[in-house]
Computed example of a mutant assay.
Amino acid sequence: MKILHTSDWHVGKVLKGRPRIDEHIRVLAELVRIAEAERPDLVIVAGDLYETAAPSPEATRVVVRALTALRRTGAQVVAVAGNHDNGAALDALRGWADAAGIALRGTIRSAEDPVVTGATASGEAFTLVALPFVSQRYAVRASEMFQLTGAEANQTYADHLGRLLDSLTGSFRGDSVNLITGHLTVVGATTGGGEREAHTIQAYAVPATLFPTSAHYVALGHLHRQQAVPGPCPVHYSGSPLAIDFGEQDNTPGVLIVEAAPGTPATVRPVPITSARRLRTVSGTLDELAALSVDDDTWLRVYVREKPRAGLRERVQELLPGALEVRIDPELLAQVGGTAQRVGRAGQSPRRLFADYLTEVGHDDGAVRDLFDRLHEEVG
Rank of each mutant, 00 (worst) to 15 (best):
R369H: 08
R309E: 00
G311W: 08
R33Y: 00
A29I: 13
T6E: 00
L242W: 00
G338I: 00
G47A: 12
T107E: 12
E360R: 08
G338Q: 14
A203I: 10
L165S: 13
H24P: 06
E248Y: 09
L223T: 03
L168A: 05
A69W: 07
P272C: 06
T213G: 07
L28M: 11
P270K: 10
G254D: 12
V336C: 01
N154A: 13
A69D: 11
D287V: 13
V78E: 00
L15Q: 02
N83C: 10
P330F: 04
E58W: 11
N86F: 01
R105M: 03
G95L: 08
E152K: 08
E112S: 12
H199F: 14
A66T: 11
Q76H: 15
S135V: 04
R20V: 05
G95F: 10
R137Q: 11
Y50Q: 06
A99Y: 00
A35G: 12
R278W: 03
T191D: 00
G170P: 12
T185R: 08
A219H: 03
S283F: 05
V177F: 03
I44P: 01
V77Y: 07
Q249W: 02
V235Y: 04
A276S: 13
Q136G: 12
R345L: 15
P19K: 01
V368C: 06
T209G: 12
A121D: 15
F126Q: 11
V361E: 03
Q227M: 04
Q202H: 08
W9A: 03
G284W: 03
G239P: 04
L15C: 12
R65S: 15
S275M: 10
R345W: 06
V326K: 07
I102S: 01
S110N: 08
V229K: 01
L289F: 03
Y138P: 00
G322R: 06
G322S: 07
A203N: 09
E58Q: 14
A153H: 07
G337P: 00
P330C: 09
I257E: 13
A340P: 06
W9H: 10
